[in-house]
Simulated assay, not measured.
Amino acid sequence: MTIKPTSEQINTLQKLFNTGVERANTMLNYLTEWPLHLQMSAIEILSSQQLQAKLEQRVNTEYVAAMELAVRGEFEAVAQLIFPADSAATLVEVLADPDRRNLDQDALKMKTLSEVGNIFFNGVMGSLSNVINGGITYMAPTYKENTVKHLLASSDSNVNATAILGRIQFKIEQIQVKGDIILFFKIYPFENLLEDITHVK
Protein backbone atom coordinates (compact mmCIF):
# COMPACT_ATOMS: atom_id res chain seq x y z
CA MET A 1 0.00 0.00 0.00
CA THR A 2 1.34 3.43 -0.95
CA ILE A 3 2.14 5.68 2.00
CA LYS A 4 0.16 8.93 1.99
CA PRO A 5 2.46 11.82 2.89
CA THR A 6 1.03 15.05 4.27
CA SER A 7 0.77 18.15 2.10
CA GLU A 8 3.70 19.64 4.05
CA GLN A 9 5.85 16.58 3.32
CA ILE A 10 4.95 16.71 -0.38
CA ASN A 11 5.84 20.40 -0.47
CA THR A 12 9.20 19.66 1.16
CA LEU A 13 9.95 16.85 -1.28
CA GLN A 14 9.01 19.16 -4.15
CA LYS A 15 11.42 21.83 -2.90
CA LEU A 16 14.23 19.28 -2.53
CA PHE A 17 13.76 18.00 -6.07
CA ASN A 18 13.41 21.54 -7.43
CA THR A 19 16.71 22.45 -5.76
CA GLY A 20 18.41 19.39 -7.25
CA VAL A 21 17.14 20.21 -10.74
CA GLU A 22 18.28 23.82 -10.36
CA ARG A 23 21.78 22.60 -9.48
CA ALA A 24 21.77 20.34 -12.53
CA ASN A 25 20.56 23.24 -14.67
CA THR A 26 23.55 25.34 -13.63
CA MET A 27 26.00 22.56 -14.49
CA LEU A 28 24.36 21.71 -17.82
CA ASN A 29 24.63 25.31 -18.92
CA TYR A 30 28.40 24.87 -18.98
CA LEU A 31 27.94 22.27 -21.73
CA THR A 32 25.94 24.33 -24.22
CA GLU A 33 26.47 27.69 -25.86
CA TRP A 34 22.78 28.55 -25.40
CA PRO A 35 21.01 29.06 -22.06
CA LEU A 36 19.20 25.84 -21.13
CA HIS A 37 16.13 26.14 -18.92
CA LEU A 38 14.85 23.22 -16.81
CA GLN A 39 11.63 23.05 -14.86
CA MET A 40 10.45 20.27 -12.56
CA SER A 41 6.77 19.35 -12.68
CA ALA A 42 4.65 18.68 -9.62
CA ILE A 43 5.73 15.32 -8.20
CA GLU A 44 3.36 12.36 -7.82
CA ILE A 45 3.46 9.70 -5.09
CA LEU A 46 2.56 6.30 -6.55
CA SER A 47 2.69 2.57 -5.91
CA SER A 48 5.04 0.47 -8.06
CA GLN A 49 2.07 -0.72 -10.09
CA GLN A 50 0.78 2.82 -10.63
CA LEU A 51 4.26 3.92 -11.67
CA GLN A 52 4.48 1.31 -14.41
CA ALA A 53 1.04 2.24 -15.74
CA LYS A 54 1.92 5.95 -15.79
CA LEU A 55 5.24 5.40 -17.54
CA GLU A 56 3.78 3.08 -20.15
CA GLN A 57 1.06 5.64 -20.81
CA ARG A 58 3.66 8.38 -21.39
CA VAL A 59 6.15 6.56 -23.59
CA ASN A 60 4.06 3.59 -24.80
CA THR A 61 6.28 0.68 -25.81
CA GLU A 62 9.05 2.69 -27.46
CA TYR A 63 12.70 1.93 -26.80
CA VAL A 64 14.12 4.54 -24.43
CA ALA A 65 17.48 5.43 -22.94
CA ALA A 66 17.80 5.67 -19.17
CA MET A 67 20.29 6.26 -16.41
CA GLU A 68 19.75 4.13 -13.29
CA LEU A 69 21.01 4.85 -9.79
CA ALA A 70 20.92 2.44 -6.82
CA VAL A 71 20.83 3.88 -3.29
CA ARG A 72 21.55 2.03 -0.04
CA GLY A 73 21.57 3.05 3.61
CA GLU A 74 18.74 4.45 5.71
CA PHE A 75 16.42 3.33 2.93
CA GLU A 76 16.85 1.47 -0.34
CA ALA A 77 15.99 3.16 -3.61
CA VAL A 78 16.26 2.74 -7.34
CA ALA A 79 16.09 5.92 -9.38
CA GLN A 80 15.85 6.22 -13.13
CA LEU A 81 16.16 9.19 -15.43
CA ILE A 82 14.33 8.24 -18.64
CA PHE A 83 14.96 9.98 -21.97
CA PRO A 84 12.13 9.49 -24.51
CA ALA A 85 13.54 9.06 -28.03
CA ASP A 86 12.79 12.58 -29.30
CA SER A 87 14.17 14.26 -26.18
CA ALA A 88 17.28 12.08 -26.22
CA ALA A 89 18.01 13.05 -29.83
CA THR A 90 17.55 16.74 -29.02
CA LEU A 91 19.88 16.62 -26.01
CA VAL A 92 22.57 14.82 -27.97
CA GLU A 93 22.33 17.39 -30.76
CA VAL A 94 22.70 20.43 -28.49
CA LEU A 95 25.12 19.05 -25.88
CA ALA A 96 27.58 16.80 -27.72
CA ASP A 97 31.00 18.43 -28.03
CA PRO A 98 33.03 18.37 -31.29
CA ASP A 99 35.28 15.52 -30.12
CA ARG A 100 32.33 13.27 -29.36
CA ARG A 101 30.79 13.90 -32.76
CA ASN A 102 33.55 11.74 -34.22
CA LEU A 103 32.07 8.74 -32.41
CA ASP A 104 29.46 6.45 -33.94
CA GLN A 105 25.86 7.39 -33.15
CA ASP A 106 25.33 4.79 -30.42
CA ALA A 107 28.50 5.77 -28.54
CA LEU A 108 27.72 9.47 -28.98
CA LYS A 109 24.25 8.98 -27.51
CA MET A 110 25.48 6.88 -24.58
CA LYS A 111 28.31 9.24 -23.60
CA THR A 112 26.20 12.40 -23.87
CA LEU A 113 23.17 11.05 -21.99
CA SER A 114 25.44 9.46 -19.37
CA GLU A 115 26.96 12.86 -18.70
CA VAL A 116 23.50 14.43 -18.43
CA GLY A 117 22.39 11.66 -16.07
CA ASN A 118 25.45 12.04 -13.86
CA ILE A 119 24.84 15.78 -13.58
CA PHE A 120 21.16 15.31 -12.73
CA PHE A 121 21.77 12.68 -10.09
CA ASN A 122 24.60 14.69 -8.53
CA GLY A 123 22.22 17.62 -8.20
CA VAL A 124 19.24 15.68 -6.88
CA MET A 125 21.18 13.38 -4.53
CA GLY A 126 23.14 16.35 -3.21
CA SER A 127 19.87 18.03 -2.31
CA LEU A 128 18.37 14.91 -0.69
CA SER A 129 21.56 14.01 1.18
CA ASN A 130 21.41 17.29 3.07
CA VAL A 131 18.27 16.19 4.95
CA ILE A 132 18.86 12.46 5.45
CA ASN A 133 19.86 11.76 9.05
CA GLY A 134 21.08 8.16 8.82
CA GLY A 135 23.21 8.50 5.71
CA ILE A 136 23.02 6.87 2.31
CA THR A 137 25.50 5.57 -0.23
CA TYR A 138 25.26 5.28 -3.99
CA MET A 139 27.52 4.31 -6.86
CA ALA A 140 27.85 5.95 -10.27
CA PRO A 141 24.64 5.54 -12.32
CA THR A 142 24.55 3.08 -15.22
CA TYR A 143 23.29 3.60 -18.77
CA LYS A 144 20.52 1.36 -20.11
CA GLU A 145 18.28 1.10 -23.17
CA ASN A 146 15.01 -0.85 -23.34
CA THR A 147 11.26 -0.47 -23.06
CA VAL A 148 9.87 0.99 -19.83
CA LYS A 149 8.41 -2.40 -18.92
CA HIS A 150 11.81 -4.09 -19.13
CA LEU A 151 13.61 -1.21 -17.43
CA LEU A 152 11.28 -1.45 -14.45
CA ALA A 153 11.48 -5.25 -14.36
CA SER A 154 15.28 -5.18 -14.34
CA SER A 155 15.54 -2.70 -11.48
CA ASP A 156 16.36 -4.36 -8.15
CA SER A 157 13.64 -2.81 -6.00
CA ASN A 158 11.21 -3.95 -3.31
CA VAL A 159 7.73 -4.59 -4.73
CA ASN A 160 6.31 -2.64 -1.79
CA ALA A 161 8.36 0.43 -2.63
CA THR A 162 6.71 3.82 -3.00
CA ALA A 163 7.53 5.83 -6.10
CA ILE A 164 8.14 9.55 -6.53
CA LEU A 165 7.50 10.51 -10.16
CA GLY A 166 8.26 13.81 -11.83
CA ARG A 167 8.76 15.28 -15.29
CA ILE A 168 11.57 17.65 -16.12
CA GLN A 169 10.87 19.98 -19.03
CA PHE A 170 13.85 21.46 -20.84
CA LYS A 171 14.00 24.16 -23.48
CA ILE A 172 16.46 26.39 -25.28
CA GLU A 173 14.55 29.40 -26.48
CA GLN A 174 17.27 30.73 -28.81
CA ILE A 175 17.02 27.70 -31.10
CA GLN A 176 13.42 26.80 -30.19
CA VAL A 177 14.01 23.28 -28.94
CA LYS A 178 12.31 21.58 -26.03
CA GLY A 179 11.66 18.17 -24.57
CA ASP A 180 10.90 16.12 -21.47
CA ILE A 181 12.92 13.89 -19.18
CA ILE A 182 11.14 11.56 -16.75
CA LEU A 183 12.54 11.06 -13.25
CA PHE A 184 11.39 8.52 -10.69
CA PHE A 185 12.58 7.18 -7.35
CA LYS A 186 11.30 3.89 -5.95
CA ILE A 187 11.99 3.99 -2.21
CA TYR A 188 11.55 1.47 0.64
CA PRO A 189 10.74 2.08 3.39
CA PHE A 190 9.30 5.41 2.31
CA GLU A 191 8.50 6.27 5.93
CA ASN A 192 12.21 6.71 6.66
CA LEU A 193 12.54 9.46 4.07
CA LEU A 194 9.33 11.15 5.25
CA GLU A 195 10.56 11.13 8.84
CA ASP A 196 13.80 12.82 7.78
CA ILE A 197 12.08 15.63 5.89
CA THR A 198 9.37 16.34 8.46
CA HIS A 199 11.36 19.09 10.18
CA VAL A 200 12.88 20.64 7.04
CA LYS A 201 11.94 24.29 6.59
Rank of each mutant, 00 (worst) to 15 (best):
Q80F: 04
A66V: 03
V92I: 10
Q52N: 06
G117M: 05
P5W: 09
L152Q: 09
Q57F: 07
V94S: 09
A85W: 03
Q14K: 15
L165N: 05
A161Y: 02
G73P: 03
T12K: 15
A85G: 02
V116Q: 04
T32Q: 06
R58Y: 05
E173Q: 15
L69Q: 06
S154D: 12
R72C: 00
A85E: 11
F190T: 02
D106N: 12
T61L: 12
V131T: 05
V159D: 03
N60Q: 08
A66S: 12
M110T: 15
P35T: 03
V64N: 13
A66P: 01
K201A: 04
G135W: 10
N158T: 02
L81M: 05
D180P: 06
E62T: 11
P35N: 04
E22S: 15
E8D: 09
T26I: 06
G134I: 05
T112L: 13
E33W: 08
V148Q: 01
G134L: 07
L128N: 01
L165T: 07
A53C: 00
I3E: 11
R23I: 07
I182C: 00
I197H: 07
T32N: 12
S47G: 04
N192K: 11
I43H: 10
T162Y: 03
S154F: 11
T142A: 05
F83Y: 15
Q14A: 14
S48Y: 05
T142Q: 03
